[in-house]
Design a protein around this nucleic acid. Sequence first.
DNA 1: CCTTTTATGGTCAAGGCGACTATAAAAGGG
DNA 2: CCCTTTTATAGTCGCCTTGACCATAAAAGG
Lengths: 239, 239
Amino acid sequence: MDVYDKYAYEPFAVTVDLAVFTVRGGALHVLLVERGEEPYAGRWALPGGFVRPDESAETAARRELGEETGLTDVSGPHLEQLRTYSEPDRDPRMRVVSVAFAALLPDAPEAHGGGDAARARWTPYAAAGPLAFDHDRILADARERVGAKLEYTCLATAFCPPEFTLGELQQVYETVWGTALDRPNFRRKVLATPGFVEAVPGAARLTGGRGKPAALYRAGTATALHPPLLRPTPEGRPA
Amino acid sequence: MDVYDKYAYEPFAVTVDLAVFTVRGGALHVLLVERGEEPYAGRWALPGGFVRPDESAETAARRELGEETGLTDVSGPHLEQLRTYSEPDRDPRMRVVSVAFAALLPDAPEAHGGGDAARARWTPYAAAGPLAFDHDRILADARERVGAKLEYTCLATAFCPPEFTLGELQQVYETVWGTALDRPNFRRKVLATPGFVEAVPGAARLTGGRGKPAALYRAGTATALHPPLLRPTPEGRPA
DNA sequence: CCTTTTATGGTCAAGGCGACTATAAAAGGG
DNA sequence: CCCTTTTATAGTCGCCTTGACCATAAAAGG
């Protein structure tokens, strides 16, 4: 990292791209924006934008998250850096290096308040067609990362509202992983992990649905999951 | 990521920084270079350099790895992107965004063949004093990532020569994690994981040391470790 | 009132893993 | 040449986790 090297260096544009996920109605959704200009005019793309001179990539990502979702409290949602995409030809116009982030939101915010957010739409992950640039790749990487992190972190609560039932939490796992889980076993595992969730003391209950009302829980203070909650292996996944 | 936005964007310099690790004599070592110029003249730093106009960050990292280690076959070593560091003030001279990588090498190459490699020295991780720029942080992040990946991947073999004993493999774990492991249990776990290691058929053996000669193994084809090989928890590490 | 639906509680056996003991095969020192 | 030391390898035992179940409780709907 020697700026005084004799090598000439070329200036790059640096952007952030966001894969913003939520779980809605049993399906994983991602926030997309429609491009208005070339290249890829009319195609959908991940929200994002330039990193400004006084910003870190993290700051820029959180700013973009607020602009695209219309959220007021932008400090709440889980946001984490994924990796950086820097293929020389990933943008046909110029050299653009993009730092990708994944964000996890609870359902509800139907997005597009004003400004940039007006362009944004929640799209089922499965229906997120061919995206602009290398965003298909970024989105796939982001989804894989989120699925993997559910195994060994308490990240699943980031998809849930402040108070939630264990059934809702299980829905998050089943939706992201695309597999069904045994309810009693899931419950046993979650409750046996100290700090994962904590019961809402008011013995509160919920919901408009059928069946016995469920107890409410809040996210606990733990972040890691030891031992991990491994997704069921369809066959053998050792390789 | 809209280049036609009205926002002015500032050009950034983009570099790669490498945390190159090896296990030597029961201690984790990292490859450092001494800076000759301001700022941080005389301080040690992670090797790295500018990403060239026709390179991706991955390509630049592998090129730098070759230049700094003097290795000929630069396609062999494990190299993986860590994350990107982009704090606006991380370089006092100008706006530099750095994509950090971790590289894992087997012991032996005493580095510095010619060119840039002459500047490079293997340093025990524990003795890697205050480094230039934010490289202390990068190095700490890299070490943590490597330690974590040993748990759920077969990455440990990247520290070993082409043929190795289970004792050497265990040494890798103990060195990176800083904990002792029970030998029979470690052996049982490694051999029970299909594709982790495969026995060298020639019933070969080794070594100049005392004791019963050990069987030789090669790295297998598996990359993931299911179930994981968790490092012993000193107390409770659920948080 | 009975069925359906969801939440919750419990059992049981197989497998993984930590702790530990035992044996085998080399080197080194008297 | 024997005995100790050292390292590799084999095996045992019991606890805990986990997957596959079964059973009960509490609501809604007909």
